[in-house]
Measured scan of single mutants.
Amino acid sequence: CHSECLGNCSQPDDPTKCVACRNFYLDGRCVETCPPPYYHFQDWRCVNFSFCQDLHHKCKNSRRQGCHQYVIHNNKCIPECPSGYTMNSSNLLCTPCLGPCPKVCHLLEGEKTIDSVTSAQELRGCTVINGSLIINIRGGNNLAAELEANLGLIEEISGYLKIRRSYALVSLSFFRKLRLIRGETLEIGNYSFYALDNQNLRQLWDWSKHNLTITQGKLFFHYNPKLCLSEIHKMEEVSGTKGRQERNDIALKTNGDQASCENELLKFSYIRTSFDKILLRWEPYWPPDFRDLLGFMLFYKEAPYQNVTEFDGQDACGSNSWTVVDIDPPLRSNDPKSQNHPGWLMRGLKPWTQYAIFVKTLVTFSDERRTYGAKSDIIYVQTDATNPSVPLDPISVSNSSSQIILKWKPPSDPNGNITHYLVFWERQAEDSELFELDYCLKGLKLPSRTWSPPFESEDSQKHNQSEYEDSAGECCSCPKTDSQILKELEESSFRKTFEDYLHNVVFVPRKT
């Protein structure tokens, strides 16, 4: 048989008469490798580009789960590009990614509803959504962080984005990388972005840091009482949809009607710091009717980097990364020049730590249904340095008659930039024990000054392991946590139920 035959053949030295091919099969003959313009397919066939392209389009058009959109890589027609490569849609070739590779997620039936953290986790790592997304989240724990972890990498949506009755959302900033909504599939009414009845939605994105392009379709905003109209108009300008909307697409009466839409800028007039305090004062603000001013709200939190936005980490279910302080308005003076500047002394802060701070007014709604208010920009203030805590785990070892090696770990709280350490030492008198000992005694162990690591005695271990207080009263049991108490109650309830079950099964009433 021919060298490319495997198993047997019907005619000697003829690659077209093989029972099976050793390498690849091409047009009725066995070959060692697939010549151009053919590609290896499933490690035994040679196919042309049209064959591989037909497989790709067949799966793409069917949208069946589990099928493969075949691509070409290293002269092979394979189910998908290997790690580190992405497909070129024009020629199906796998090309190296520039940075992290995109991950295209194809949605069944063309859309997916995100109504819980669990459903959001199914899209973790996706960068391109081939379909439409509907966000409908009523509640949950730590929602802002969970949504950002699972949806934060999405850069492109081919269909539309719909935010509907998501009472738990305060902001859409968890879509931190969303840059493009194509609108290839539109919501009824030709809408590519749809926001309806979101009672706590206050911000779409921080438009000073976020760009969003909507290729096709219109915007729809109705019944978002805490979303200011200025935020919607800003989205029109940034996304390129200005002029597409009709009169009733953006409701003037049901958007922002319960919001404090600040239209003035508060400026800080005085800032002073110490290692654990920050004193702030800002310019006074009074609405047209000074009785509408209820006070100020001061927001602050630790910020290692200057990239904080107002609604980071917030949701309507209680999660809030900001510390909020309510401040009463100052006494009002008739003389504008003698107006008191409101302020606040922030206490209990960490030394040498940068804080993000902003302040906003708290006002009631005027009778004319106009909203007044003022808010400052987010500023960054760093507390002063102070003395560091003591170095940890000092170790001293003498390696000769004239040297001592000293080692330690950095302090747990540096409280500033540590530039150097101060080492103090003092000579001590020799131990009298060394002169009084009889060095001729056998088995004498000389006193040693070398360091030995501390260890816990058996008594201390027994005390720590004991669940009861000892007789001397030195140790006591740790208080039980809520989960331990709940577990004990469940076990007790189970024992009672099981005992009742045994009584009912074992003891049967005697027939009379």
Rank of each mutant, 00 (worst) to 15 (best):
residue 250 I to V: 05
residue 332 R to W: 07
residue 411 P to H: 05
residue 294 L to F: 06
residue 361 T to E: 12
residue 368 E to C: 07
residue 161 L to V: 08
residue 395 I to Q: 06
residue 195 A to H: 02
residue 161 L to N: 00
residue 340 N to F: 14
residue 127 T to Y: 09
residue 321 S to K: 15
residue 285 Y to L: 13
residue 227 L to P: 00
residue 154 I to R: 00
residue 255 N to L: 06
residue 203 Q to H: 03
residue 293 L to R: 03
residue 175 F to D: 00
residue 198 N to R: 00
residue 237 E to G: 08
residue 362 L to M: 11
residue 103 K to T: 04
residue 209 K to N: 14
residue 213 T to P: 02
residue 188 I to K: 10
residue 119 S to I: 15
residue 191 Y to F: 06
residue 324 V to L: 13
residue 143 L to R: 13
residue 171 S to K: 08
residue 287 P to R: 06
residue 285 Y to T: 04
residue 110 G to V: 05
residue 401 S to G: 13
residue 307 N to Q: 01
residue 224 N to H: 10
residue 245 Q to A: 13
residue 321 S to V: 09
residue 326 D to C: 03
residue 174 F to Y: 14
residue 219 L to C: 15
residue 151 L to N: 01
residue 274 S to K: 12
residue 283 E to Y: 10
residue 331 L to Q: 13
residue 264 E to W: 14
residue 209 K to P: 04
residue 354 Q to N: 08
residue 120 A to Y: 07
residue 368 E to F: 14
residue 405 I to R: 06
residue 328 D to N: 11
residue 392 L to W: 06
residue 304 P to A: 15
residue 121 Q to V: 04
residue 330 P to N: 08
residue 127 T to F: 13
residue 180 L to Q: 06
residue 319 S to D: 15
residue 165 R to V: 13
residue 337 K to T: 12
residue 303 A to E: 02
residue 255 N to A: 06
residue 263 N to G: 15
residue 353 T to I: 12
residue 138 R to S: 14
residue 171 S to Q: 10
residue 154 I to Q: 00
residue 403 Q to L: 07
residue 137 I to K: 15
residue 368 E to A: 14
residue 161 L to M: 07
residue 265 L to Y: 06
residue 148 E to R: 10
residue 227 L to A: 02
residue 292 D to S: 06
residue 127 T to G: 06
residue 382 Q to P: 03
residue 301 K to T: 05
residue 273 T to P: 03
residue 315 D to I: 05
residue 234 K to P: 02
residue 122 E to S: 15
residue 288 P to M: 07
residue 344 W to A: 10
residue 302 E to I: 06
residue 160 Y to E: 03
residue 299 F to G: 05
residue 284 P to Q: 09
residue 151 L to Q: 00
residue 254 T to R: 07
residue 323 T to S: 07
residue 167 Y to K: 14
residue 204 L to N: 03
residue 351 P to L: 02
residue 323 T to Y: 01
residue 216 Q to R: 05
residue 199 Q to G: 14
residue 234 K to G: 14
residue 370 R to P: 13
residue 114 I to P: 01
residue 271 I to Q: 13
residue 348 G to L: 05
residue 342 P to R: 03
residue 338 S to E: 13
residue 213 T to A: 08
residue 291 R to G: 05
residue 257 D to W: 11
residue 165 R to E: 11
residue 213 T to N: 05
residue 374 A to S: 06
residue 352 W to A: 13
residue 127 T to I: 05
residue 164 R to C: 06
residue 171 S to M: 04
residue 258 Q to F: 04
residue 137 I to F: 13
residue 314 Q to F: 12
residue 345 L to W: 14
residue 194 Y to E: 14
residue 185 T to C: 03
residue 386 T to G: 04
residue 310 E to T: 11
residue 353 T to S: 12
residue 187 E to H: 09
residue 132 S to G: 09
residue 166 S to H: 02
residue 198 N to W: 00
residue 254 T to Y: 12
residue 354 Q to M: 00
residue 291 R to V: 10
residue 324 V to E: 14
residue 223 Y to T: 14
residue 350 K to S: 10
residue 390 V to G: 02
residue 287 P to W: 03
residue 304 P to K: 08
residue 260 S to F: 03
residue 338 S to G: 09
residue 109 E to V: 02
residue 128 V to G: 12
residue 136 N to H: 10
residue 259 A to H: 08
residue 373 G to H: 02
residue 261 C to H: 02
residue 292 D to A: 03
residue 352 W to H: 14
residue 240 G to W: 15
residue 219 L to N: 03
residue 200 N to W: 02
residue 126 C to F: 01
residue 395 I to K: 11
residue 159 G to D: 01
residue 206 D to A: 14
residue 128 V to I: 08
residue 192 S to C: 04
residue 331 L to N: 14
residue 243 G to V: 01
residue 244 R to E: 07
residue 173 S to W: 07
residue 286 W to N: 11
residue 403 Q to I: 03
residue 397 V to T: 08
residue 170 V to S: 09
residue 311 F to R: 11
residue 171 S to T: 09
residue 329 P to M: 09
residue 178 L to E: 00
residue 104 V to T: 04
residue 324 V to I: 04
residue 108 L to T: 14
residue 315 D to T: 07
residue 126 C to G: 00
residue 381 V to C: 00
residue 341 H to V: 07
residue 358 F to W: 04
residue 279 L to M: 11
residue 340 N to R: 02
residue 113 T to A: 07
residue 274 S to R: 09
residue 362 L to G: 03
residue 234 K to I: 07
residue 372 Y to V: 12
residue 305 Y to G: 09
residue 260 S to E: 06
residue 300 Y to M: 12
residue 409 K to H: 03
residue 267 K to Y: 14
residue 300 Y to V: 06
residue 155 E to V: 14
residue 293 L to M: 10
residue 228 C to P: 03
residue 369 R to C: 07
residue 112 K to P: 02
residue 350 K to L: 11
residue 151 L to Y: 01
residue 241 T to I: 08
residue 245 Q to M: 14
residue 382 Q to E: 09
residue 115 D to M: 04
residue 277 K to M: 10
residue 348 G to P: 13
residue 231 E to D: 15
residue 169 L to Y: 03
residue 112 K to G: 02
residue 239 S to W: 03
residue 154 I to S: 01
residue 135 I to R: 02
residue 340 N to T: 14
residue 271 I to M: 09
residue 291 R to S: 12
residue 126 C to P: 01
residue 364 T to D: 15
residue 291 R to H: 07
residue 205 W to P: 01
residue 226 K to E: 10
residue 349 L to K: 01
residue 392 L to K: 08
residue 151 L to H: 01
residue 250 I to K: 04
residue 164 R to H: 15
residue 181 I to N: 00
residue 141 N to F: 10
residue 347 R to P: 10
residue 239 S to Q: 04
residue 169 L to V: 12
residue 110 G to N: 04
residue 372 Y to R: 07
residue 395 I to G: 14
residue 278 I to H: 00
residue 286 W to T: 10
residue 313 G to C: 04
residue 207 W to Y: 04
residue 254 T to P: 06
residue 377 D to Q: 05
residue 130 N to K: 06
residue 202 R to L: 04
residue 161 L to R: 00
residue 393 D to C: 15
residue 310 E to Y: 05
residue 156 E to W: 06
residue 127 T to A: 04
residue 193 F to E: 00
residue 241 T to K: 11
residue 225 P to W: 03
residue 272 R to W: 13
residue 148 E to V: 04
residue 343 G to Q: 14
residue 295 G to I: 04
residue 268 F to V: 09
residue 241 T to A: 12
residue 381 V to E: 08
residue 374 A to F: 03
residue 380 Y to H: 02
residue 397 V to Q: 14
residue 117 V to G: 14
residue 268 F to S: 01
residue 222 H to L: 15
residue 295 G to W: 10
residue 167 Y to A: 15
residue 132 S to K: 02
residue 169 L to P: 08
residue 136 N to V: 13
residue 152 G to S: 03
residue 302 E to T: 11
residue 150 N to T: 08
residue 212 L to F: 14
residue 394 P to I: 13
residue 185 T to K: 13
residue 183 G to P: 02
residue 388 P to I: 06
residue 150 N to R: 08
residue 131 G to C: 01
residue 144 A to V: 13
residue 341 H to F: 10
residue 358 F to T: 03
residue 305 Y to R: 10
residue 207 W to R: 02
residue 323 T to W: 15
residue 410 P to L: 10
residue 187 E to A: 04
residue 249 D to Q: 03
residue 377 D to M: 09
residue 150 N to A: 07
residue 304 P to S: 06
residue 174 F to G: 02
residue 393 D to F: 15
residue 374 A to H: 05
residue 203 Q to I: 07
residue 118 T to G: 15
residue 167 Y to I: 14
residue 324 V to C: 07
residue 169 L to C: 15
residue 352 W to P: 00
residue 138 R to C: 02
